[in-house]
Simulated assay, not measured.
Amino acid sequence: MDYTTLKQEIIDHSKSLGIDKIGFTTANLFTELKNHLIRQEQLGYQSGFEEKDINKRIDPSLIFDHPRSIISIALAYPSKMKDAPRSVKGARRGIFARASWGTDYHTVLRDRLTRLEAFIKERVPEARFKSMVDTGELSDRAVAERAGIGWSAKNCAVITPEFGSYVYLGEMISNLPFEPDEPMEDQCGSCNKCVDACPTGALVQGGQLNSQKCIAFLTQTKGFLPDQYREKLGNRIYGCDTCQTVCPKNKGKDFHFHLEMEPDGEIAKPLLEPLLTMSNKEFNETFGHVSGSWRGKKPIQRNAIIALAHFKEESAVPTLIDIMKNDVRPVIRGTAAWAIGKIGGAEASDALIVQHRHEKDEEVLEEIKKGLAFF
């Protein structure tokens, strides 16, 4: 088998599959990554969503029998929403991060990887693969960096010269010996805009992220959001794009190559108040196809309540009072109590005083006290 010719055929065919960039690398150990992961773990900077076994994250041979190469793919996604609905008084809106616009990227990239596997299999029947997107053992970014897709930037994203950091990444371990591509040189230079702009200081330094402080991570947690981050949340209900939007390498980058990734403004930038009373069925029917729904409606609803407080949206107070009194979930009741106090007004203070007499949950009572402290 002429693997040089096959590699070029794969590159050429990948474009017809809707793959915007493709790179090849070895299946060798990711030695430098191991030291970084150990350090992150020691510092308590991990999110908890990662593969727990560090060795599996850096050694392809532990998850695939006799790996010989890894193919990395990238798909560019939009950075701008056409005809985005406006957030106005009485009809405030939240925002999903760009990585949750359109159809769940896991679904889109798995489709591309499956079709790429089929193309290679036709030419090499004995070929074997293990493909993954985001939730696999390997680090998508480490693979993409080594495969020459882009460089690992100070904002902890992979930046491509063509599409900036607005790319989804996936990879395919293979038993085929493809010639590796050359990694790309770091082009961040002395720029530190992403580190300086991070709302919570989660970018400790260039290339190092404390996930526990990152808004993108915090929006996915299910408990009470720590007090110090509530003001920082703004109207974000899932994810955060600040470290991408301030990046000079992303200036002017906006690609609309894939219909599945086009955002529906009513979903990507939804009205906040209707979110609060959605049933599980309604939530899944409306948001189930986007990646931001993976943790269910509870974190989204909690974040929506905080966003209404951010806007000081007085028209939402009656709904928030009802939630504070009747929702069975302490986190939602308590967050609503805090938001009622933050928004303020006579109706708000009276409701908090009354509920303080009836509430039994200690954490919710603490949130009611926080709400009352605003008066």
Rank of each mutant, 00 (worst) to 15 (best):
N192F: 09
L308W: 07
I305E: 11
R86M: 12
L33S: 08
P299G: 10
E9T: 02
L209G: 10
D350H: 10
R357E: 15
K52P: 03
P67R: 00
Q205I: 03
P248I: 01
A76F: 07
C240F: 03
T103Y: 10
G136E: 02
T242V: 15
C240L: 01
K80F: 10
M184H: 01
G189Q: 11
I71V: 08
T114A: 14
V195M: 08
I353E: 15
D196H: 11
D104P: 03
L272S: 05
S349T: 13
I237C: 02
L138A: 06
A27M: 08
Q301V: 07
N175L: 03
I343K: 05
T160K: 01
E314C: 00
T319L: 12
A336W: 04
A339R: 12
I71N: 06
S293L: 03
S61Q: 14
E262G: 06
D350E: 15
I10M: 02
G345F: 01
V108F: 04
F119C: 06
D227Y: 09
R146M: 09
D65S: 09
G252L: 03
E273S: 11
D186A: 11
H36N: 06
C191F: 04
G296S: 03
S100M: 08
W294H: 13
E117M: 15
E262D: 13
R146H: 13
K342Q: 09
K7C: 00
G207P: 08
I22A: 09
Y166V: 07
V133W: 08
R329H: 13
R302M: 10
L218F: 12
N155C: 10
A118K: 14
E363G: 04
A316K: 01
W151F: 10
N210R: 10
E285M: 13
H36I: 13
A346I: 11
R98C: 10
I332D: 06
V328T: 15
N155W: 07
V133D: 02
R115Q: 14
R141H: 06
E182Y: 11
Y229F: 15
V331E: 14
F255H: 14
A307S: 13
A99M: 15
L209K: 04
K213R: 15
Q46P: 02
T277C: 09
E359Y: 01
I149T: 12
T286G: 05
D140S: 00
T219R: 12
A97D: 09
K52N: 07
M1L: 14
E347D: 14
N250V: 04
E363A: 06
S69A: 12
I149G: 08
H358Q: 13
L308P: 08
H106S: 02
G44N: 04
P180Q: 03
V204N: 07
L37W: 03
T107V: 12
G170Q: 04
G341P: 05
M184I: 14
V124F: 11
A197E: 12
I300F: 07
V246W: 05
L271H: 03
E282N: 04
F163Y: 14
D327G: 00
W294R: 13
C214M: 07
Q228N: 06
Q205A: 09
K360A: 08
Q301G: 00
V331M: 12
T114K: 15
I237G: 08
E363L: 14
G44I: 00
F24M: 09
K213H: 14
K249W: 14
N326E: 05
L276E: 10
P226W: 02
I10G: 03
D65N: 12
L271F: 01
